[in-house]
Nucleic acid binder design. Structure first.
Length: 587
RNA sequence: GGCCCCGUAGUUCAACGGAUAGAAUAGAAGUUUCCUAAACUUUAGAUACAGGUUCGAUUCCUGUCGGGGCUACCA
């Protein structure tokens, strides 16, 4: 690899010039910025105290020495303290010639990525979309860098929330099913949840009007009491309640599965909260025995994290039931038991739970689990719309299914408006609208740094120009038709071929892919990859505009350009697939 | 109140502590020699504020101001 080779060279040179004591200083190259000539840049400021000379002279000195000692470097220039090294064209052309795709060594440990993890009382919304796209893409990226990955989700299938939907269904909609209503199961259940809330509010208001305190009214509303009763019955495994519960959850799963399918995400293993919600308690009691936790007179168990700058947190309520934190302790332990070679456990969860995970990981550490170090919270910011924030209370939540419909519809409208896609059959068109609409959505969301809050603009995302999914897809399709039109020759390369600056830049960009992939994997951040795909697209368009490809007379040059085009198309397709985005050959 | 995250062109996004802060859109002006003009070229425009650390700060530290989140015997 280029970096390794250059590092060795520079190390030797520096020791030759300034002696052994310099060998502790790390050597880092950066890509030369495009307004300067060169491929890699060495910043010489760190070496000044050894050279005892000015930045310019030091850089000049190092450059001269390097030039003399290696064939790889054919020239250099110095700008202030920056030594720009120019690598031999032969290196780049040979790299392209011997290109075999990406090779990462398979790693031993397993990575688990948790994402989605919805409640079963309402359909998925825009926030879940970001969650799913991130989790899925990160999984793909990790796999692409040689890791074994298990994609999981926890389904929050029990608790008061699902009882609310069940109760509303029994009271107001008994007999209604997805089949009878023609509605998607998760939407139907969601409607009952909303119905519950309406009735509940009315009841609370009535009680308050009759003179009751707000708080008291909230817990005394008849429908809420019934819901709590139902939860108790559920916990006692009451057959009738469990029957309804299972039926309605199944409706929801069926609906979710359709949504996941459209989103293009999958899971390898599901954890159901109903099966795991009791597992953390024993561990907490054990921790209590070891003095890690403390109990109150009423029997509740707490962890005191004030010394770590955090709060006191409850783990077991006075009535003996566990809280969310306790369950999470349990599932984490369970997972490391299920997968003994688990190295990292990545939780894809919104940033409103940053504190929760901070506490969770700290508790796991205190409990003495060495694997706690491998737990990561992949935190992401909220998604807003140009119209403002989503608020469930104000009914401004964007439903995931509706959103996807809208994206596909916009793709249709824009395509028709532009008069493209002539000569496509109706079914081909439909398929393409889906690919374009979803590509727009995914690309727009994934190109943003996960931790940042972002604004999703459906209109802008589906523009066929600019930093968008459809533009990347379109460029890929254009390269593919170009390649289809070229009579395929054996794409042999002569490594001494002359290349233009645009071509060299394109090769360098292709070369950068591995680095970008490693960075994306290390930081669990698909945004690097998305922006890389776009950079490649832009460079390709410039290349195409600058030099002829098909019309090039010189066979060696034409072969080179065709090969370069092939590699670019491959890279784009690869990067996009790791984002979960399809790239059509024609569009 | 305490804790965490974010403040970059009109807008949406970039920038391992490095060079003249990059793109894209919207604006202005151009370009039909190979693929599909859904392209390309040129142009104008930004680091919230004040300090500090250092050869160098959008990046690290402190404070101020703005936006968001968490701070339940909810999940």
């Amino acid at each position: 690899m280029l970096e390794e080779e250059l590092t060795d060279l520079v190390k030797t040179t520096l020791t030759a010039l300034y002696g052994e004591r310099i060998s502790d200083i790390p050597i880092n190259f950066q890509h030369t910025r495009k307004e300067f000539e060169g491929d890699r840049t060495l910043v010489v400021f760190p070496y000044l105290k050894f050279s005892g000379k000015s930045p310019e002279i030091t850089a000049e000195e190092i450059g001269k020495e390097l030039l003399g000692s290696s064939e790889l470097i054919v020239d250099y220039n110095v700008v202030k303290g920056f030594l720009n090294l120019i690598v031999d064209n032969v290196f780049w052309v040979n790299w392209l010639r011997n290109f075999k795709g990406l090779e990462f060594e398979a790693e031993k440990g397993t990575y688990m990525v948790e994402y989605s993890s919805p409640n079963t009382n309402k359909p998925l919304h825009l926030g879940h979309v970001r969650n799913n796209l991130l989790g899925y893409s990160v999984s793909r990226i990790l796999e692409a860098t040689g890791k074994k990955v298990v994609k999981v989700q926890v389904i929050n299938d029990r608790g008061i929330h699902i009882c609310k939907s069940m109760l509303a269904w029994e009271t107001f909609g008994k007999g209604v099913s997805p089949q009878s209503s023609g509605k998607k199961g998760d939407h139907l259940v969601g409607e009952f949840y909303v119905k519950f809330d309406q009735v509940y509010k009315e009841e609370v208001k009535a009680l308050v009007d009759s003179g009751m305190e707000q708080k008291q009214a909230e817990s005394n509303a008849p429908i809420m009491k019934s819901a709590k009763d139902m939860l108790l019955k559920w916990e006692e495994k009451d057959q009738k309640v469990r029957g309804t519960w299972k039926m309605m959850n199944d409706w929801v799963y069926e609906g979710f599965n359709k949504t996941y399918e459209r989103l293009g995400v999958q899971f390898d293993r599901l954890y159901y909260e109903s099966e795991t919600y009791l597992v953390g308690k024993d561990e907490v009691i054990r921790g209590l025995g070891k003095g890690i936790f403390e109990s109150e007179n009423d029997g509740s168990v707490w962890v005191d994290l004030t010394e770590d700058g955090l709060d006191r947190k409850i783990l077991i309520r006075s009535d003996g039931t566990s809280v969310y934190m306790t369950q999470d302790i349990g599932t984490a332990i369970l997972r490391f038991k299920d997968y003994p070679d688990l190295e990292q456990l990545v939780y894809t969860v919104g940033n409103e739970q940053n504190y929760h995970f901070k506490v969770l990981f700290l508790i796991l550490k205190k409990l003495g689990f060495s694997w706690a170090e491998g737990c990561v919270h992949l935190s992401y910011g909220m998604v807003e719309l140009p119209s403002g924030k989503m608020k469930s209370r104000e009914g401004t939540v964007v439903d995931a299914d509706d959103l996807m419909d809208e994206m596909v519809e916009t793709a249709r409208l824009k395509s028709e408006e532009l008069g493209k896609l002539e000569g496509f059959s109706e079914s081909e068109k439909e398929a393409l609208y889906h690919v374009i609409g979803m590509g727009a959505l995914k690309y727009f969301i994934l190109k943003v740094d996960p931790k940042k809050q972002m604004t999703f603009n459906p209109e802008e995302s589906i523009d066929f120009a600019g930093n968008t999914g459809p533009f990347v897809q379109y460029t890929h399709a254009r390269i593919k038709t170009l390649l289809a039109k070229s009579e395929s020759t054996s794409l042999q390369l002569d490594s001494t071929i002359d290349i233009e600056a645009v071509e060299r830049n394109l090769i360098k960009e292709l070369y950068r892919y591995k680095e970008v992939l490693e960075l994306s994997a290390r930081e669990f951040n698909p945004a690097y990859l998305a922006n890389y795909a776009y950079d490649l697209v832009k460079l390709y368009n410039q290349f195409y505009q600058t030099v002829p490809v098909l019309k090039e007379e010189n066979t060696a040059k034409r072969n080179f350009r065709l090969l370069l085009s092939t590699r670019v198309a491959e890279r784009i397709a690869n990067a996009m697939s790791l984002l979960g985005i399809a790239v059509p050959d024609k569009m």
